[in-house]
Amino acid sequence: MDDHYSPRPVAGWFKFAAIASVLFMAIGCAGYLASVLTDPSSLPADQRNLMAARPIWMIAAYAIAVWIGLLGSVLLLMRRKAAEPLLLVSLIAAIFTFIPYAVVPAVSDLVTTNDIAVAVVVLAITWTIFWFARHSRQRGWLR
C-alpha cells in the first residue's frame, strides 16, 4: 500500500501492541547490559567460554539491535513514521547478532539447542514488531 491512502482509525489493540514492543526491546537492552557488564569469572565455564568466543561485531550488532529497537518501539508507541526504518535496522542487526551461531566455529561449537531456540524466538518477535510498524504505517496510523 501507499502512504497516500486515507488513514484508517487506529485499531484498539495498537497501544497494547506498541507497549509490548517497548517492553520486549527494554528486556533486550537489560540482557545486553548484563552480557557486557557481567564479570566472566563469575560464570560457569561453558558460558565464560561462549562470552570469550564472541567476535566484537556480534556484540556491536547486539547493541544496535536492542538500543535502536528500543528507540524504534518508543517512536512506534508515539505513532511516528520513523519507527519503521529504525525497527528494520534493529531486525537486520538482530540477524547479525545470531549469525555467529552458524558461521563462527568458536561460537557455533559452544551454543546449545536452547541458545538456538532463543535466537529463533527473538528473531520471530523482532520481525513481528517490524511488521507491526510497517502495517501501522500502511494503515496511516503513523505520522
Rank of each mutant, 00 (worst) to 15 (best):
T126N: 10
Q138N: 08
I129E: 06
Y101V: 02
L123C: 12
G140L: 07
W127G: 08
A133K: 09
V122P: 08
R134P: 00
I92C: 12
V89C: 09
Y101R: 00
A83N: 12
V122T: 14
W131S: 15
T113W: 06
W127C: 12
V89Y: 02
N114F: 14
V103G: 01
I125C: 05
V107H: 06
W141M: 02
P85G: 12
V111E: 12
S90M: 06
A94S: 15
A82I: 07
T97R: 07
A117V: 12
D115C: 10
L123P: 03
L87N: 07
A83K: 11
V104K: 01
L91K: 09
F130W: 15
D109T: 14
A119W: 04
V118Y: 08
L110E: 07
P85S: 11
D109P: 09
F98R: 00
S90T: 07
V104W: 03
F98P: 00
F96S: 07
A102H: 00
V103D: 05
I95S: 05
V103S: 11
P100W: 10
A133L: 03
Y101T: 03
W141A: 10
A102F: 10
L110C: 08
L86P: 01
F132K: 01
L88H: 08
I116P: 01
E84R: 14
A133T: 00
L86V: 04
R80W: 10
D115L: 10
V120H: 00
A117L: 09
V107P: 02
A106Q: 14
F130Y: 15
V121H: 07
W127V: 13
T128F: 14
T112C: 11
R139W: 02
T128P: 01
R80H: 15
S90A: 14
D115W: 05
A93Y: 11
L86I: 09
Y101A: 06
Y101L: 09
L110H: 12
E84M: 15
S108Q: 07
F130K: 03
A133P: 03
A124P: 10
S136T: 11
I129T: 11
R80K: 15
T126M: 02
W127N: 10
S108T: 05
T113M: 08
P105Q: 08
A94I: 03
R134I: 03
V121E: 04
G140N: 01
P105E: 07
W131V: 02
P105F: 01
V111N: 11
A117W: 04
I116M: 14
R139K: 15
W141G: 05
A83I: 13
R137S: 10
K81E: 08
A119S: 14
P85I: 09
P105L: 02
L87Q: 12
A106T: 13
Q138R: 13
A83Y: 13
N114S: 14
I95D: 00
R134M: 09
F130I: 04
L91F: 15
P105M: 05
N114Q: 15
I99T: 10
R134E: 13
I95M: 13
A133R: 01
V118S: 12
L123N: 03
E84I: 01
L88S: 09
T112V: 04
T128M: 14
Q138C: 00
H135W: 14
E84G: 01
A119I: 12
V120G: 08
V103H: 05
V120I: 13
S90E: 08
V103C: 11
L86S: 02
L110N: 04
N114E: 13
A133D: 09
F98K: 00
I99D: 01
L110T: 03
V121Y: 00
